[in-house]
């Protein structure tokens, strides 16, 4: 059974997206990077990210991720901010009752995007 299926597929993504996005926006370490964005459009992007991190269907390209975050890297986006997002992701899954083992797997998938997000 795939990671995505173990987590509960699209229903799990839907359950997680609001909780995750709320945490991110309320996290003083990273909230400034979301100033001025269209919240509804951003929520759709968060959903795409969660689907990918949950091992769901995606056509992830590092190039898109680099392009999408380049302006934030210019504003100082760095490893500490990436860590904060992964932390919020883990806390979201914990809140939804996901096991530590699966949370570790999701964090590992998210980790594969680090260099692209940070433009390294």
């Amino acid at each position: 059974m795939s990671l995505y299926d173990q987590l509960g597929g699209e229903a799990a993504v839907n359950a997680a997206v609001d909780i995750f996005y709320r945490k991110v926006l309320q996290d003083d370490r990273i909230s400034r990077f979301f100033d001025g964005v269209d919240m509804a459009k951003q929520a759709a992007k968060q959903k795409a990210f969660l689907t990918m991190a949950f091992g769901g269907p995606n056509n992830y390209t590092g190039e898109d991720m680099r392009r999408g975050h380049a302006h934030l890297v210019a504003q100082g986006l760095n490893d500490s901010h990436f860590d904060a997002v992964v932390e919020n992701l883990a806390a979201t899954l914990k809140e939804l009752g996901v096991s530590d083992e699966l949370i570790g797997q999701v964090a590992a998938v998210a980790e594969t995007t680090r260099n692209d997000v940070l433009g390294k």
Binding site: K45, K47, A48, P57, N59, D64
Partner: peptide
Amino acid sequence: YSCRSGTCQ
């Protein structure tokens, strides 16, 4: 387009 998998809209 971006994700090509029906999520990013």
